[in-house]
Design a protein around this nucleic acid. Sequence first.
RNA 1: GCGCAGGUGACAGAGCGGUCAAUUGUACCACGCUGUAAACGUGGCGGCCUACGGCCUACGGGGGUUCGAAUCCCUCCCUGCGCA
Length: 400
Amino acid sequence: MALSFEITARDSKSRARVGRLAIDDRVAETPAYVAVATNGYIRTVEPEDIPRTKTQIAIANTYHLWRELGDEGLESYPGLHAGMEWNDGIIMTDSGGFQVFSFGASREHAVGKISSETGREFRSGESMVRVTEAGVYFRDPTFAGADEEQYLDAELSMRIQEQLGADIIFAFDEPSSPHHDKAYTRTAMERTHRWAERSLEAKTSEQALYGIVQGGAYEDLRKESARYIGNLPCAGFGIGGAFSNSFGDTHERTADELLWTIPLLPENKPRHLLGIGRVEDIFVGVEAGIDTFDCVIPTREARHGALWTKEGRLDIGGKGKYADDGGPIAEGCECPTCADEQVSRRELHDLFRSKDLRAGRLATIHNLYFFNELMERIREGIREDNLAAVRRAYLERTGR
RNA sequence: GCGCAGGUGACAGAGCGGUCAAUUGUACCACGCUGUAAACGUGGCGGCCUACGGCCUACGGGGGUUCGAAUCCCUCCCUGCGCA
């Protein structure tokens, strides 16, 4: 099993490129959108739906699968391709590094909320993780085991990722947080570098390992991290700790971070932007030279009733006006939901309102298709050296 | 006709002398979601106003008791169940 990456076209006005990412006979054309399948499946969607959404790559999560399956469950896990009943696509696993942030720093400034799943109230302002040089302790009441704390480090992350059997795996990292100052951001970045070395060292499989660049919003740190990680013998590179306009950040800042980082990474290896993004973000990333993106937006927002179109995001599940709208979700959309099942805005709205589980599936299929089609258009745009036309087609009507 | 139980905001359903414009859920409205503790979360939800405060109208109708009533009493109307 070996990753190959071939650049087949370039944009003359930006760093955008078209590529062919292959792992054995699994192939993805890039730039590509990666569907998020945290727990080893894309929520609400059936295995047979995946190819119909033009999805080429999916990403599952080490931490959440470990939490769900436990050590024993992992022993007998048949692997993600079997688990997802999806043999043709490329599958990645995130290392669990993001949970260091989402259970940690992101909670420290978060607004309190209640999980309806567990009925448990999680107070904001309390980190649930303890980061040490060796690894991270998670205080997670929803963990399969009954232990007070769960310990995860680079070596264990590699072992779990090997058991999960994705094609591409990520180094264990500590994402930078917009809540941290420069000194801590440096500390986390340097730790991430050491953990990347340990991840490479610990890996025994043939899986392609991506190192992760951190460094937050600081130019010197980003560059330092890109040089460091870029020099490691990784199959590809992830760029982490980018939040676009979340957490008070901006698209411009994301663009800056990418522009500092990417020129320092090997030209002929794939680059993945972790956790981003929305349509505007995709253009920013592609033009900066990103090859793959993963983001929960298409799937999560679909379940929340929001449908993505060239007119922008429509709150079909939430807005009463769609009860009287018999039109298609998106004019001319060729997705299975719109073209095959011919679901109207009204029908979808009614399904959401009646809490019908089919709503999430239909919406998820549409959104995934929408983003995958966007990527297809972007590839065409780069090949034709007219990315601007694609940008116009997607962003003009939303005023971005 | 008699007996019993009830009539509370769009609906369901708490409250049972003051801290009640009234708990909670649903519905509805607005907003949010970026390596998924999210098929979810936050806020609003009688009207009016020179709105971190005030005024009015409100707990089936009417009338009482009381400094004060959604809460107690009388009466009328209505609903459900039981007996005729």
